[in-house]
Amino acid sequence: MTQHTTEIRPVARHRVSRPLLWALLAVFAVANVVTSVSTLPVYVGVGFGLAALACAATLIHQHYATRRH
């Protein structure tokens, strides 16, 4: 009789690459500055600011999740 073992693998999380996050952070930060000095509505600049904040938070989270102790 053959025994079959099932291997439990951890669920792979989809991670965005760091260079892409850095590029998005730069784009959103520049867009936030441009909308701040232009006559566009405030909520457009707030949206870019929140997107930049989300990119920065994701980069910080990835840094602490993968750093060696």
Rank of each mutant, 00 (worst) to 15 (best):
A52Y: 08
V11Y: 14
R18F: 02
T58K: 09
P19F: 13
V27D: 12
R13N: 09
H69L: 11
F48Q: 01
R18L: 07
H63Q: 09
C55V: 05
Q62R: 07
P41A: 06
H4K: 15
A56T: 09
A12I: 14
A26K: 15
R68Y: 13
V42R: 09
Y43I: 11
R67G: 00
A12H: 14
F48V: 00
T66W: 06
A52F: 05
R13A: 13
Q62G: 05
V11M: 08
R68C: 02
V44H: 07
H4E: 15
R9C: 00
F48L: 02
Q62P: 01
R15I: 05
G45S: 10
S17D: 15
V44K: 02
V46T: 15
W22L: 07
V11P: 01
Q62L: 08
C55F: 12
L24E: 11
H61I: 05
C55R: 04
A23D: 12
H61N: 05
R67Y: 12
R15V: 03
T39M: 08
V37T: 10
T2K: 04
C55T: 07
V34I: 14
L20F: 15
P19D: 03
L20C: 03
V44F: 04
A54F: 07
N32F: 10
A52T: 05
H63T: 12
I60D: 03
R18A: 01
T5G: 04
A29F: 10
V42M: 03
V33R: 02
Y43P: 05
F48A: 02
L25M: 14
V46A: 12
G47W: 09
P41E: 14
A23L: 10
A65I: 03
T6P: 00
A54M: 06
L20Q: 11
V44N: 07
M1Q: 06
A29C: 05
Q3T: 14
L21G: 03
R67D: 01
S36A: 07
H63E: 02
R68T: 09
V46R: 06
H69P: 11
T2M: 02
F48I: 00
V27L: 05
V30S: 09
A54K: 07
R15M: 01
I60R: 10
A56P: 03
H4R: 03
R67W: 07
E7R: 14
T6R: 08
L53Y: 10
G47R: 10
G47M: 10
R68S: 12
T6I: 10
Q62A: 06
M1R: 03
W22Q: 14
A51G: 04
A26I: 06
T5K: 09
L21I: 15
H61V: 10
